[in-house]
Structures are given as C-alpha cells and as structure tokens.
Write a protein that binds this DNA or RNA. Structure first.
Length: 527
RNA sequence: GGCCCCAUCGUCUAGUGGUUAGGACGCGUGGUUCUCAUCCACGUAACACCGGUUCGACUCCGGUUGGGGCCGCCA
C-alpha cells in the first residue's frame, strides 16, 4: 500500500544531492545515509551530485567538508565522472557537479523554448514581489500571474536586443491533477494550477534547481529519489517537466524532517553542529550513523545498536516514519558512550592521544627512548608538566581507567589530567573523609597508606598486590572510606575519579608515594 | 493567506479492531561502591479532541485543534 518500490527493484540508483552552501549537518547526513541504505539494501548504486548552480552561495570549502564528512562516516558513493573500476574508492573520482554540466541543461532548455513549453519572462523582481504580496492578501495562490506568457516574437527580440535580463519560465498546464506515489507517504496529489509558471533558468546559462534536478536524475538514470520532506512540493513541478520533456519517471521517498527542540526544521543556530564538529568533539562515526538511522526509522524489533553494514541489511522504506523527529543529543551521547566502551583499548588510546596533546598534557617525542631491554620499539611521549618520559602503555592504562565514563573523546583531558600533572592543586580539606572528625584521623590514614606503599617493592607495585595490602588494611577501619578517600584525593586532587588503587598502579610507586607525601604536608599546614 | 504533510510516554519509537499499550534515552529509587561512572534490578510517564463505523476502537472513516513544510531570479 505504501509503495511500489518492492515491485521493481532492479538497477536501483539513488543520489545524494547536497548544495555546498554550508557544512554537512545531521539533516544532510540523514538524507545521505538513507539514500545510501536504500541503494545498498537493494544492491544498487549511490551517486553523489553537488548541486552548485548557485555560484554565489556555493563554496569549495563546503564541498570539501561534505566529502570529508561522508568519507569519515563511511557513506561511500559509487561513481563520478572519472569513474573507472580500477580506482573504486572515495576521492579517487570526483562527484558530479552541476556547474560542470551546463551544456547539457542548455540543450534541454532550448528544446522546451522551441516547443513553446517554456517562455521568456522579463518581469522585474520588484514587479514579482508586489504581485505576490497582493495575491496573498487576496487569498490567491502566490504564483507568477503569467504576464510574459504570450509575448510576441518581435517584443521578445526587442528586449533581447536591449540585453534585458530574462528568466525562462515553464508554461505550466492549468487544471491538471498531478499525483505520485510516495514510498513513505503513499498517494500525494497536487493541482497544477496552483503551481504557476515556475522559473527554470536565469538566462540560458544559469539553470535553476527544479529544472536541473529533472535533467540530472534522468541523465544519471536515477530510479529512486530519496530526499527531505521539504521537497515534497517541488515534486509536482518536476513531474510536469519530465512529462514535457518525455523523460522517464522516478520513484520518490520523502523523508520526514529532523526537527529542533521547537519542532522546526533544523537549521544553523539550533545548536546542532556540523558533522565535522561532532568529529572534533570525539563522536564516533558509528554512533552518528546509528543515531541518525534511528531518527525516523526502526527495524520493528527492539534492537537499538546497528552497524552501517547491519543497517544495509535490515533497512526498509516501509519502516520509515512519517512524522518529523526531534534531534535528541542525550541519546547520541549514550550511543557514543556505548561505542567507546566497545572499542578495543589500543584503538581507543590512539584516538584519545590527539586530545591529550591538544590540551597540552603530553607531547610526542622526536626519538624513541625505550630502554634497551624492551624489545618493542614503542613511541614515547613526554609529560609536559614534569618532563618525564612515558610510553604508550602508560597512556593506555590511563585511558582504561576512564573508558566507561567517557561520552565523547574530548572529555578525556578533564578526566585524566592529574595523571600528567606535577604538583596537584586542591584544598587540604578535600582530603578529609566525610566521617572523619578531625585532621589527626586524616593524618593517621595518610601515614598508614604511605607506610604500606613504601614497603612495596617497585616491581611488585601492581594492582593485585596493592589491592591485597590496602583493602586488607581498609577492612580494619569503620569503613573503607577512611583509607581510600584520602588516598584517592591525594592522588587525583579531585572529588570524583576512578578508584585509588587502580590509579596508584598506573602512576607507579614513585609518583604515588610523592603525592601521598605532598598530601601529608598539606595536612600539617592546616593543623 | 494558499497548497501539501503529520499527530502513542519529556524524546526516539513498537503497535495494523479485543494488549496489564512494549522497548530505548532521560529522570527517580535500590544494589555494587571511598567518590564518580559502568553494570544490575525496580520505578516514572503516552494513545490531542469530537463525532461516526463496529459487539468492541490507539488502530478504520470524517471533522476539529495543534504542529510542520513549501509558496525565490536558493536548494
């Protein structure tokens, strides 16, 4: 009932056709993703077409942003003008650009004018605007009234000779019902009279959206147009053009919009970031794809986690939602945290390192300074605050400590900074466990910890031993907090952190003992 | 203003005439625990309204209300 998609699924070809007037945002990703999934689900191809007919607003940098974001997300398109089977990976062949296809459009445009299906319009912007205002005030459809529709040949020639700017308008047939079967909405119907004589091109050199889309979709043999619902009212215009030019029809699937918290179409200033910003913040592409896929689609089961590959298997147009969906960052965070926890530690550490460097915590060393007795030639770093050398294992251990409380990679710095610090700054008062009555109790606790830790050999300073020794001692106290809280604060300088024993194991004996001693002297100054 | 689209917890959604209206995020409580987070358990909360069809409507039909989109020499 919803579609005729399932009837004819051979040679499916979809396209993602962004205009490079801004960075790729979540709304664009949704259209790109669904176009991709649609194509892949039915074994077809995705075409990327840059709609840069508006030279004023189109920028190469945005085009670049779109490429990079799609590449990062793994939304690979299948062909471009330079396509050959040897170089089938992204970036090796360009996408189609409408700005490079002007001769094609001009050919079709001339045909329409010659067949008197389109005409020259010399009306000024002001004229058009004032008519629109009038029409709306009268409750009339605000469309072009058709003033230039029947200009005689002599007048046209005269204006052309005067070099007057002109528009080519489509001679929209009146009183025609245009219906199409939308894959997500079912039958949609429009009255052609209400469309008016819409514009096709500025002069012959600057073709406009509704026209070029029709030509390109035909020329590129697109079978299925997957796009946002905001294009639904352009569809009858495009169908009329297909009919006028005798081109084959395409199927449509109009996606519900992604909405802001006020339930409006997503736009800039909605605190929704471009994809490149999500990348920078430390979101994973798998989280973004998963999140965006679930915005307006679901498999009908209770499964929530989907890889891109699983999505291509389970996706179906029938399950696409009709209503718009609000972009909810909390769920994105949850998903991203989930994917972070799934990541193998080595890989996660590698991804986190740039954030630590950027924050000025560590820097990569030029030379490898691994001691000769180790056989792995690992990369070394130095801690900027202290100048100490560390290796990847230290970083991995540091990140392991905080893996499960990370929602996005950019948070890592605030969490682990104390592991890369010299002297910690914190008030002595923070060291005191809430159940302690005086500083003597605190001093006793820290001294005990120091005594126990000092007694452990450097080579035995590992989690298992520390646990055995410290937990044993802590068990003798009214509660473990008497030993563990002061120790944790001494090691981190923070109210919240990972467990003190795990942290001590990462810091190693030297740093740990030093920090306990620092804490003890801090306590003395308070007394 | 005209045309088009839409309507289940706060959010994303399952549901296709008979259900204790299910799940997830969030939030709350409890457990684990020195803290935070993770994890586990439990809880919280919805069929916009009015008619009709029917033995029976969240589900079908009509209307109302509400929300959204488009109405460019943007895409």
């Amino acid at each position: 009932m919803t579609s005729n998609i399932s009837d004819n699924l051979s040679n499916v070809r979809t396209r993602f056709a962004p205009s490079p007037t801004g960075p790729l945002n979540p709304g664009g990703v949704r259209t790109a993703l669904f176009s991709y999934l649609f194509a892949k689900r039915y074994g077809g191809s995705l075409i990327l077409r840059i709609e840069d007919t508006d030279i004023e607003r189109s920028k190469k940098e945005w085009e670049q942003d779109i490429f990079e974001s799609m590449k990062w997300l793994g939304l690979v398109w299948d062909e471009g003008p330079d396509y050959d089977n040897q170089s089938k990976y992204i970036g090796e062949y360009g996408p189609y650009r409408q700005s490079e296809r002007k001769e094609i459009y001009a050919k079709y445009l001339k045909k329409l004018v010659e067949e008197e299906k389109a005409y020259y319009c010399f009306c000024s912007k002001e004229e058009l605007e004032s008519y629109k205002q009038y029409a709306m005030s009268q409750g009339l459809p605000p469309v072009y009234p058709g003033k230039c529709r029947d200009l005689d040949q002599a007048t046209i020639q005269k204006y052309l000779d005067e070099k007057r700017p002109f528009l080519i308008r489509f001679k929209t047939p009146k009183g025609q019902k245009i219906t199409f079967n939308d894959a997500v909405r079912g039958k949609v119907e429009f009255d052609s009279t209400l469309l008016g004589d819409f514009s096709l091109s500025k002069g012959f050199d600057n073709p406009l959206y509704n026209f070029v889309v029709v030509i390109d979709d035909y020329e590129m043999k697109i079978t299925d147009v997957v796009r946002g619902e905001d294009h639904i009212s352009n569809t009858p215009k495009q169908i009329l053009l297909q009919e006028a030019l005798g081109l084959s029809k395409v199927r449509y699937a109009h996606l519900p919009l992604i909405l802001n918290e006020k339930r409006q179409k997503l736009s800039k200033r909605d605190n929704v970031l471009p994809i490149s910003a999500y990348k920078k913040e430390g979101y994973f592409p798998e989280a973004l794809n998963n999140f965006v896929a679930l915005l307006g689609w679901n498999p009908g089961t209770e499964k929530e986690i989907f890889s891109l590959e699983q999505l291509t298997k389970e996706f179906s147009v029938e399950k696409i939602q009709k209503a718009g969906a609000i972009f909810n960052p909390q769920k994105l965070d949850w998903l991203n945290g989930f994917y972070i926890r799934q990541k193998p530690l080595k890989e996660l550490a590698r991804l986190c390192i740039p954030y630590l460097e950027e924050r000025g915590l560590i820097k990569k060393n030029e030379k490898m300074i691994r001691p000769e007795d180790e056989l792995l030639p690992e990369v070394s770093y130095s801690i900027i605050a202290t100048g100490e050398n560390i290796f990847e294992d230290y970083l991995e251990n540091a990140i392991a400590l905080y893996k499960e409380r990370l929602k996005k990679l950019s948070e890592i710095g605030d969490l682990v900074d104390f592991l890369f610090a010299g002297i910690l700054e914190y008030p002595a008062e923070m060291l005191k466990w809430k159940k302690m009555t005086d500083y003597q109790e605190l001093a006793d606790s820290l001294n005990k910890t120091l005594e126990l830790l000092s007694a452990i050999e450097e080579k035995d300073f590992i989690k298992e031993n520390l646990e055995k020794i410290l937990l044993d001692e802590a068990g003798k106290m009214p509660d473990r907090g008497f030993l563990l809280w002061p120790m944790r604060v001494a090691l981190t300088g923070k109210m919240n952190s990972a467990g003190p024993i795990d942290i001590a194991a990462v810091l190693g004996k030297q740093r740990t003992v030093k920090r306990i001693e620092d804490a003890i002297s801090k306590t003395r100054s308070v007394k």
